[in-house]
Design a protein around this nucleic acid. Structure first.
Lengths: 330, 330
DNA sequence: TTGAAAGCGCTAACAT
DNA sequence: ATGTTAGCGCTTTCAA
């Protein structure tokens, strides 16, 4: 194995404790012996054993990350940023993926606890008071990202409601008469965490209302949302329709469908997404969407969590900025 | 903290050693005491401390993963699969990203070594004998994925050369007269690992040769490959041209450019990619490409690595299957 | 079949 | 300023 603190102690003719003081720059040691020990350690290429240190200190220098998966582009970017900032701060990163299975999430978290991670960054899929209590019972600092669990946890995200509201008002301004809103089922409350989705939906309603559109949008939450859209007519004598999707992925699927029907976007029907995932740049027509900086999410999440870990608490992180990208699809 | 083996020992009126025997199903213990201990452990919700175990056993149950980044869709999928299989096998996953910076790669690996990972799965960016020696000096099982380092390491991938060769021959069969091959710089050998890229390029040449095309393709390795393509003429009186890209990302960028010039694909110029990244389904015209199962890469990589870790060696993994996807771009 | 004891490598409290 | 010692929680060898 590697060189140990003990061996260095023997070589330098001092005790392990003294070596520890030198290597960890702790007080109670003369400059001279300290310099000597550090030099010897350097020459022997001493590498501390984190396992041993963890056991002794009760801290692992590890951040646990819980995500749905890495398929969604945004998650991948998020993870990318988390990894970078964590390593920069000297932390290891343990990743677990829940695959959007609420039942799996606790198992994933437990996995991290076995590993004795110092803190957890979580894009939660579970929700509600029970889950909130569960998280609290873990006695580990937690930072939530993208999906709020409760007001008791640090949260990193944007003001989804306001963003969607502004987007919808922008669309209204373009003269659309009918609205279709496509999003995942919003009825799973308490089972699946759809905080962000709910916020966006609420924003949509607010936007319409404030603009004076009394009619509610047609809400599509079918798993087979493409099929549902397929049963609607657009263009021709129909009222001018905008399909607002709660995320780009949905919008792209819908776009494929509309193209397949030979409908022109936005002439026959308008389309809008949310997230500005990077593949949009290869798609025609350019999708109108809302952009925000996921990397910033990762960065802030790590910083906030490290603050929690090292200070015992952290200042609340303000909601991050976003902006609408006016494409050609509306 | 949690319940310890010692506490259980006290409760059961036995020694810690006996508890260990029971909990780890090791011989030398009566069924009766074993059952009792296990029951008590269950009731107390005993969770072993992996840190302590690691220190005692010299094994961390952790797999280190070294990737470029997670931006590339394939990497994300790969990581997804690695995480799933690792956890299934009881291993933790530590992720480090090199961001394609060769100088960063060793730092990343060292990070994992500090963590005392039991083995490493690496999509290597470095290359050559020196790096090979370096890896060997680590004394840790390593499985290489997508980029071979040397014949001495287990490798998971497809036969890129053969796949590209077949693809090129398919294109030849479509009557194209001129070939443009777009790929990253192939001259960094020894500095950046472009094993896979070299294989694909070699496959392209072989394919052309065997088909009887004597003329070499125009090879574009500029960083600004789009600019280079921009200086070429297609359609009209030009010879019928196929642009073969060594990966889908390049092909999509080129497609954007060609569309911008008002060129029709494939009427004015043919286009081909490689990898079948999932966003292709949102792109028109459908890109002709080569598909393989990245998830399988992850699965096999983990299995192979675990075999190395637990058996000390592993059977070589055969090259995985691939298939051409005939889109509408050729 | 079970117990006792010595580590794994590092940290930290207490002596000197 | 430095040494000594007792752990952290688990594994493992050697005795009993």
């Amino acid at each position: 194995m590697g060189v140990t603190i003990k061996e260095i102690a023997v070589i330098c003719g001092v005790s392990p404790g003294t070596v520890d003081r030198a290597l960890n720059h702790r007080p109670g040691i003369s400059e001279k012996t300290k310099a000597k020990i550090i030099e010897v350690a350097r020459q022997l290429n001493y590498q501390p054993d984190y396992m041993a240190r963890s056991l002794a200190k009760g801290r692992t220098m590890t951040i646990g990350v819980v995500l749905f998966d890495l398929y969604n582009r945004s998650f991948a970017q998020l993870m990318n940023a988390i990894e970078a900032e964590s390593r920069r701060q000297g932390y290891f990163v343990d990743l677990v993926l829940t695959n959007k299975d609420p039942g799996n999430e606790k198992k994933c978290i437990e996995h991290l606890l076995h590993r004795k991670v110092d803190g957890i960054i979580i894009f939660a899929i579970n929700y509600g008071e029970a889950f909130d209590r569960y998280l609290k019972s873990l006695n580990v600092p937690v930072v939530t990202v993208c999906n709020r669990v409760s007001g008791d946890w640090s949260y990193i995200g944007i003001d989804d409601r306001k963003a969607m509201k502004e987007a919808v008002q922008y669309i209204c301004g373009k003269g659309y008469e009918r609205f279709v809103y496509v999003c995942p089922p919003l009825s799973y409350q308490g089972k699946t965490n759809i905080f962000t989705q709910e916020e966006r939906f609420a924003g949509c309603l607010e936007g319409l209302k404030e603009f004076g559109m009394d009619e509610l949008p047609v809400i599509v939450t079918d798993k087979d949302y493409v099929g549902a859209i397929g049963r609607m007519s657009f263009g021709g004598g129909e009222p001018r329709t905008a399909i607002v999707c709660s995320c780009d992925i949905y919008a792209l699927e819908v776009m494929n469908h509309l193209k397949g029907r030979g409908l022109r976007i936005p002439e026959d029907v308008g389309l809008m997404g949310f997230d500005n995932i990077d593949v949009l740049k290869y798609v025609t027509p350019a999708l109108t969407t809302v952009e925000y900086d996921v990397e910033q999410f990762g960065l802030q999440a790590v910083r906030c969590l490290v603050e929690h870990i090292e200070q015992g608490s952290a200042a609340p992180v303000p909601l991050l900025p976003y902006r609408m990208i006016a494409g050609a699809s509306i």
